[in-house]
């Protein structure tokens, strides 16, 4: 956009319109510093991937990938080492499923209430409470699960172990509820008024309007919130470490103690395995699986959100 005319620099200098070297350098230095700040996030990503990949690679030089994914026994910290991640994945799936079965419908229900039925005052009271719920440290939720929910569940259902995925899943349901609710409320409220008016104009009752017009229109946002909540449940650590226990158990009985991937990472990371030992490396292999799953879910939810935002803007 700028042109160069011979002699113009001299004339520009004469009237003081020329570029000042000190100012240009100053601005460039600041711009570079700011860019470096932004690049920290790239470095973080590289570091995350590198730290997981390096040790995982070492791990798989000694352990066969086939065994890792097919064996049903996981005892890397014992004398007799077995490396089948299945029990950990099953434990994670069990807790996540319980959390989702309870948390997703509750979250969506709360979202529908807040977006469609609640008055201004209710909304202004409930929303901060949900924020508080989302902000409770997970160690406090784990304490609650282990020392309040588990005894209650053990009173109600016979044969439940002290550590069990039931109470962990139950409490985790309320951890993911605010995630589901806040994103779903946004997407429900983003449904254009014209669409609602069209629905009412066609004689729909409020119930019909919500179930047949508003929720379907906001579906991609709701699904995105579900995916995000699942991802959060899978990556959640403290509740499961405290309430679901640390023994990898290949079982479909939710009354039994089951270790999740994250619980194992804590167990192995806080134990006293020598760095570089196979037991210590198994931690990184599990982390690789965990990271991949959550990354895929996050990207998936972003894709869904992008489709949804294109629709109405």
């Amino acid at each position: 956009m700028e042109r160069k005319t011979p002699g113009m620099l001299g004339r520009a200098r004469a009237v003081g319109l020329n570029k000042r070297a000190d100012r240009r350098v100053g601005e460039a230095v600041i711009g570079t510093l700011l860019l470096l700040c932004a690049l920290v996030s790239v470095v973080t990503t590289v570091a995350v991937v590198y730290s997981i990949a390096e040790e995982t690679f070492q791990f798989f030089r000694e352990v066969s990938v086939v065994e890792f994914f097919t064996s049903r026994v996981w005892t890397p910290l014992f004398e007799n080492q077995n490396f089948g991640i299945a029990p950990l994945v099953l434990g994670t799936l069990m807790v996540t499923s319980i959390a989702c079965v309870i948390g997703l419908p509750l979250g969506l229900g709360a979202a529908i209430y807040l977006a469609e039925f609640a008055g201004d005052r209710t909304r202004r009271t409930v929303t901060p409470i949900l924020e508080v719920l989302a902000g409770i440290p997970t160690v406090a939720l784990g304490y609650f699960a282990l020392l309040f929910v588990t005894p209650v569940i053990r009173d109600l259902i016979p044969g439940v172990n002290l550590f069990n995925p039931l109470s962990a899943g139950f409490v985790m349901a309320f951890l993911i509820l605010p995630t589901v609710t806040s994103i779903s409320v946004d997407s429900l409220r983003a449904v254009p008024r014209s669409l609602r008016e069209a629905g009412y104009g066609l004689g729909a009752s409020k119930f019909e309007l919500i179930t047949r017009v508003v929720v379907p229109a906001a579906l991609s946002g709701i699904i995105a919130s579900f995916i995000l909540a699942i991802s959060r449940a899978i990556g959640e650590t403290m509740i499961v470490t405290l309430a679901s226990g640390g023994r990898p158990n290949f079982t479909f009985d939710p009354r039994q103690e089951m270790a999740t991937m994250t619980a194992f990472i804590v167990q192995a990371g806080t134990g006293d395995q020598a760095a570089g030992s196979l037991g210590a490396r198994s931690l990184y292999a599990v982390a690789a699986v965990l990271f991949t799953i959550t990354l895929v879910l996050n990207i998936l939810s972003q894709q869904v959100v992008r489709r949804f935002s294109e629709k109405y803007e």
């Binding site: 956009m1 700028e2 042109r3 160069k4 005319t5 113009m8 620099l9 004339r11 520009a12 200098r13 009237v15 319109l17 020329n18 570029k19 000042r20 100012r23 240009r24």
Partner: peptide, 9 residues
């Protein structure tokens, strides 16, 4: 001075 010259700030 041409305001769009490269020399101009």
């Amino acid at each position: 001075v041409d305001l769009y010259d490269r020399a101009v700030d």
